[in-house]
Each structure stands twice: as C-alpha cells, then as structure tokens.
Design a protein around this nucleic acid. Structure first.
Lengths: 275, 275
DNA sequence: GAAATAGTGTCTCTTAGACAGTATCAA
DNA sequence: TTGATACTGTCTAAGAGACACTATTTC
C-alpha cells in the first residue's frame, strides 16, 4: 500500500499535477500599527476593486505563487508577501517589526472563492503619510480610537471607519492584532519597536499608555523599566531640552538585548480602556 | 479607476475565474498532545505516500475545497479540517482542546507544489491507541522525550523518531506547539484540558511537571492553585483510595470558569528541562 | 510502625503600587 | 517664581519559594 522506494517517489512527484487540486487562494493582510500624535493608529486602505469596493480594509493581497509574463515562477515566503503588499498599497515599510498573527479561513469570508488569509502584525516607527497604490484607492493612518471597536467583542462585525464597517472579516483581524500588541507589551520589549533608536522613559511610557489605552504611573513605571535586565540601556546622553512647558531634561536609552521581560510589566487588572 | 457600484461588483464577481489564479494548496497539521503513563506524548503517523513516504509526521492533510463526485462543493473551516484529518488518519478525537498554532509557508517546504500549512495544537484526554487510516501507514503516541528535540533549537531540523527525522518542517511545528503548550500553562487553565472532568491537585501538578519537564514543589503548588480564583472548584468528593504505597486520600476538583490565571503560575526561571 | 502522600503554617525575599519628596528645566 | 517634568525614597500589601509541620492512608 505504501510507496517507499526513491524511484516510486520520483515517479509520483513527476505525475503530480497541482492544477487538478484545491481551488483555493492565499492572501496576506497586515495590521500595521504606529503612534501618531500620541494616538495608536492603524494603516487602512480603501478598496478600489470588488469585492467590498469602496470599503476600508487592511492592506494585503494575494501571495505570489504564479508564473510571471517572463515565465519565471515567483515564490515568496508569507512574510515577504506581507511586506510587499504593504509597500505596494501604501508605500509604508514594515521595517521595525513583523510577526504572524493568525490565519482566517471561514469558507464564506470572500465571495469570490475560497480565500484563506494569513494575517500579520507590523509596527512602524514615525511613518510618513501613506501613498496609495495597487488595488488601493486611498490609504490612511487611522486612530484606533476612531474605529468603533468594542474592546471586548469587536469580532461581532464592528470596526467601522466613517460609519462604514471594514471589509471582509478585517474588524476581527484588527481586534486580534490589537490584543496581540497589548499582550506582548507585558512580557516582551515590543514597545521599543514603536520608537526610534534612542528614546526616553517617558516616550516608552507613552507607548504603553497609547496601546493599553490607560494611564501608567510615571514614577513606578520609570523604576520598573530600569529594574528589568536588558530592557533598556543608558546612552549617557540627555534630551536637548526639557518639556515644552518646563521640566527636567531626560536620559536617553536604547533597546537592550532582552527578548523577554523578567519580571513582566503587567497590565492593570481593571476593566476596559478609557481612551 | 475604482469600481464602486453594485452592478459593476456583481459583473466582476461573475467574471471571476478562480482556476486562473494561484496554484497553491492548503493543508492542516495537528500537534496532538496527551499524557500517557505520566509522559507528555505527541501523536505521529507514518506516511504511506510520497513525499516523505515512510517518514513519521504530524497527522494532517489537505483542506477540502474541491467538488466531490456528487458535484457538491465541500466547504469546511480550517478547524473542521484539522479535526477531520486527525480522526481519518488516527481515529483520535480532538475533543478536549483545539487551537490554531501558526501557518508555515516556506516555498520549498513541500516538493510537489506550493503548499502552506495551518498548524493546530490539540489536547486529548486519556486517549486509546490510534488506528491508522487514510494516507497513514501507522500511527502512534510517541513520548516527546524520545524525540531528539533540542529544547532550544528544534527548528534546525531535529525531531527524530527512531533515528529518522520528521517529514517536512514538522519538527519545527512540533517545537512551536510544545512551546505554546508550555507557555499557556502559565497564564491559562489549559492544564485541565489534559485531565478528565474530575481530578486531584496532584494530577494537575503531574500535568505541569510533564509539560514543563521539571519538578514542581507539591506544597507550594497546592496552595497556589487554590489561591487563583476560578482555576479549580472543589467537588466535595475525595478519591476512592490513597496512593498505591500509602498516603492520604485527595480532594477532587473540577475546572473552574477562569479563562486567565491571576496571578499566573510562572515557570521556574532556570535553564533547560531535565527529563 | 514506617513510608508515602495530602494539605497547611510560616518565614524570607521580591515585586506592585501608592504616595511623597527632590532635581531640573521652560516660561 | 511657578508649574511642569524627571527621577528617587519609602511604605504596605501580596506573591514566590523554601522549609517544616500536621493529617491521613497503605503496607
């Protein structure tokens, strides 16, 4: 019953015709987050083509698995596809952080055919305004607070921009991406991926406050960050000036080499965000 | 440039021919874990068909997206596909826990064609011996300790059973599944999914010890589990007998309704497991 | 009774969080 | 000088882990 010899295996592979099987497409969609004016913002595009033409959506598109005009077979990894689509549709580079989120495969999630999408979470440092391209009619950094995401059950079809919900199941993907970011701030140095190479403790605290949507005690936060080995390392430099309305000049830090935070910075246990 | 009207959208969808695009296949593979004789074990199958015929692998297979002989279009969600393939190939039911792990899409991971696989983690309570079926020539619960998984970098091609490495990139998927299980024991009540409806604190501790691969202090564990709200609830019953070589009879508990553990049961910080 | 297991008491060390105080800067 | 911001000191409560002790059961 089983085929075990190398010759049989070679024959089997030669006779295998991919196009006979499995009419399914694979896309990638990216939840790209950044801090703009202190507000946690997500990169959205307005779809130029059906389905959901005119709707806002996460940037993304089909993974390249097909032959090009030159007959060359394009084979890109999923991560590469996510970065390529992000740049094509918005001009934004996911240079600070990119990680896989989850895969969504509800058979009804795309009206065209069976499409499963691999979702990514990207963080971007101090990005420019996006420039729409490809299948995107528009692109914009959108404050997360402006989207009607009930913090608990955004899965239930919420996530609207200017009154219109997001395309496909993108509201749920966005909610999952936000939760991932919130959770990873607790036990990884992910917050530093929102910031440039040098930052102050107050800027780091601003990341936590924006992502968690709650105030963090400045004094305790300061002491705690410095007490976690490898989280940040002192540069010896201080900021050029104090705050705009007075205040001491702050030490500058760089991200350390810790990949996990011990001890972790736990979210306050209290309920929902305040915004 | 953009198509926004409902008529245009309908026309576009009617003209869309899925088979023109994207020769890619989607599979699901499951890391099914259980406790057998106190040892953390994973369900493996021996492949009957190329590629990797004769190799041990994770149970899994193609997601059904094609027309059957009757012309009926089978559309199953990814979770359903994972459960179906698990049962087809091994006879085992993933009835206790099933969650998505990650998706693996390296263009070279399958010699046939572009195959991306959505990996799942399943937990099974006190399972029978598997019965191989479908494309599986054999199936067996295999103690994780018997696989040569260097705890740190099993990704690098390790994960061998009886001298032979696992098929495809399944060693890496298995390593990711184990790490997911280990991490989730810390902050979720996942350990109860390894056990039947009623269990003792010692049985719960045995789960932690098997999955983490290290001894856990009985007294402190006991007090700590009871101190976490909603982790376990007392049944009022006790075990029929004490231990086989003496010992007090133990209280029986059921899983509580907590979905997160506050405070968490953190892994001891020390390096590598002991086994 | 001896050995094993269940469960509790208690001590020390560390951490979270509240609060207050000092240091330094802009206007 | 005032007010804002950076940073530090200190106190309290709670949790982690070590250790020891009591309770109950099997052999």
């Amino acid at each position: 019953m089983s085929i075990t010899g190398p010759d049989e295996e070679r024959e089997f592979l030669a006779a295998y015709r991919p196009e006979d099987y499995h009419p399914v497409a694979v896309t990638v969609d990216t939840v790209a987050l950044t801090l703009r004016g202190g507000a946690l913002s997500v990169l959205l595009i307005r779809r130029a083509m059906p389905p959901f033409a005119g709707f806002w959506a996460l940037p993304g598109g089909f993974v390249r698995t097909d032959k090009t005009a030159s007959g060359h077979l394009v084979e890109e990894d999923l991560d590469e596809a996510a970065m390529r689509e992000l740049t094509e549709e918005t001009g934004i580079l996911a240079d600070s952080h990119l990680e896989q989120l989850a895969t969504y495969g509800d058979p009804t999630r795309d009206p065209r055919m069976r499409v499963i999408t691999v979702a990514y979470l990207a963080l971007v440092v101090d990005p420019p305004d996006p420039v729409s391209g490809g299948d995107a009619a528009d692109a914009a950094w959108t404050p997360v607070a402006e989207l009607n995401l009930a913090t608990a059950d955004a899965a239930a079809g919420a996530g609207a921009r200017r009154g219109r919900p997001l395309a496909f199941d993108h509201a749920r993907i966005l909610a999952d991406g936000l939760e991932r970011a919130r959770a990873k701030l607790e036990y990884t140095p992910l917050a530093t991926a929102f910031l440039g190479p040098e930052f102050t403790i107050a800027e780091l605290r601003a990341v936590y406050e924006a992502v968690w949507g709650r105030r963090v005690h400045p004094g305790n936060f300061h002491r705690k960050v410095l007490s976690v080995p490898g989280f940040v390392v002192e540069t010896g430099q201080v900021t050029e000036r104090g705050g705009p309305r007075g205040g001491r000049r702050a030490q500058l830090y760089r991200a350390g080499d810790a990949r996990l935070l011990h001890p972790a910075l736990l979210r306050p246990a209290g309920e929902g965000a305040e915004q």
